[in-house]
């Protein structure tokens, strides 16, 4: 094992503990006098209507979708960039073709108004 990754593994266990410690201390140090009104939801001072877990509009989904496509393509490009010294010219051009495909995806989504936010 690479020692750096062992260190990161240790860090992955320690960091949440360090973040949780003050919360726990605060939880037990502070007063604890709950009552129904205090524990109710605060929404602009008006009485709460229904559950918060309501239906959302399709736009969020669309943005996540476009983001997913971009993410997958970009992850492919990282090894290409790292290997840059080993690449002949046409390999660089292949990478460029890949990026142009990405650009085409962006332009399509743009022209279809999938990137427009509306209310």
């Amino acid at each position: 094992m690479d020692p750096t990754w062992v260190f990161i593994g240790v860090f992955f266990i320690l960091a949440p503990l360090l973040a949780a410690a003050p919360i726990l201390i605060g939880h037990y140090l502070g007063p604890h006098k709950p009552n129904p009104i205090k524990n109710d939801v605060y929404e602009c001072g008006l009485k709460t209507v229904g559950d918060a877990w309501v239906r959302f509009k399709v736009q969020y989904y669309l943005f996540a979708l476009v983001f997913l496509i971009f993410d997958v393509e970009l992850v492919f490009l990282y090894p290409w960039a790292v290997a840059y010294d080993m690449l002949p010219t046409f390999a660089v051009l292949e990478g460029l073709l890949f990026i142009i495909m990405l650009l085409a995806a962006l332009i399509y989504a743009w022209k279809r108004e999938a990137l427009d936010w509306y209310d």
Binding site: P22, I23, G26, H27, L29, G30, P31, P34, N39, V41
Partner: peptide, 18 residues
């Protein structure tokens, strides 16, 4: 902040809230 009351909303999803 340490001495503030830790209010947990009654209708919250407790585990994820923590």
């Amino acid at each position: 902040l340490l001495t503030k009351e830790d209010i947990i909303p009654a209708k919250a999803d407790k585990f994820l809230y923590w």
